[in-house]
């Protein structure tokens, strides 16, 4: 997995609440057996018309935001299905961090498995960051995972919370499965005990 340490980039404002995983990557693009190549279809139905032409008003189609690396989004971002295609599409497009007041649980976990940092901040902070993101390409936001801060283009700093284990894995770009396999002895002994206690499982 790619490491996430510190990012300075363009943030795109997407104030809509309840942006669901069907919006992030419509199901027609789930019929792939690969993880890559989904960026072109990120937000497909909001981003393109039926003929495949870009809808100019859509934020990521605007010249200032085409190279965005951060999204500042409305509440409950990533709700809906468990499809990991949503973070795959964000990642493939180039989004490395998403900021919102809350995220759906499965999407939140999926982000960390793909080197994307989801950041939860209170409404007042997200409001300030949304305004900062609206300034466009000349305004670079800074996300520092080690320090757990987001800094606006004006230098205003917001601290965020993140689970220490998830932070560690993201900073180091660690492979979860490899880490768990180091604990194989614990799994073995649990399995032996559980199958004695609950042999019907």
């Amino acid at each position: 997995m790619d490491k996430f340490e510190k990012l300075t980039g363009i943030a795109a404002p997407m104030p809509l609440v309840n942006i669901d995983t069907d919006m992030i990557i419509p199901k027609v693009f789930l019929k792939t057996i690969k993880r890559s190549g989904l960026g072109v279809n990120l937000f497909d139905e909001m981003r393109y018309d039926r003929q495949g032409n870009e809808i100019p008003d859509f934020i990521l189609n605007q010249p200032a935001y085409r190279e965005s690396e951060i999204l500042v989004a409305g509440d409950n971002f990533g709700c809906g299905s468990s499809r990991e295609h949503a973070p795959w599409a964000l990642k493939d497009f180039g989004i490395k961090a998403v900021i919102s007041t809350s995220f759906a649980d499965i999407f939140y976990n999926n982000c960390f498995k793909n080197g994307i940092l989801p950041i939860v901040l209170p409404q007042e902070a997200v409001d300030v960051l949304m305004k900062d993101a609206e300034k466009g390409a000349n305004a670079r936001m800074i996300v520092d995972l080690e320090a757990q801060t987001v800094t606006t283009s004006d230098g205003e700093v917001f601290e965020f919370e993140v689970d220490s284990f998830k932070k560690h894995c993201l900073l180091q770009g660690l492979d979860d499965i490899g880490l768990t396999m180091e604990k194989a002895a614990s799994i073995d002994s649990f399995e032996a005990k559980a199958s004695a206690e609950r042999p019907w499982v």
Partner: peptide, 29 residues
């Protein structure tokens, strides 16, 4: 790897959806 895994909770089973990386994690471990 489907969010509606919650369905199985009706039996008093702890059931939830996971992403594909977690599917791989469960398959392996």
């Amino acid at each position: 790897g489907d969010s509606h895994t919650a369905t199985h909770g009706a039996f008093g089973a702890l059931a939830h959806g996971i992403g594909t990386s977690e599917v791989e994690h469960v398959l392996a471990t």
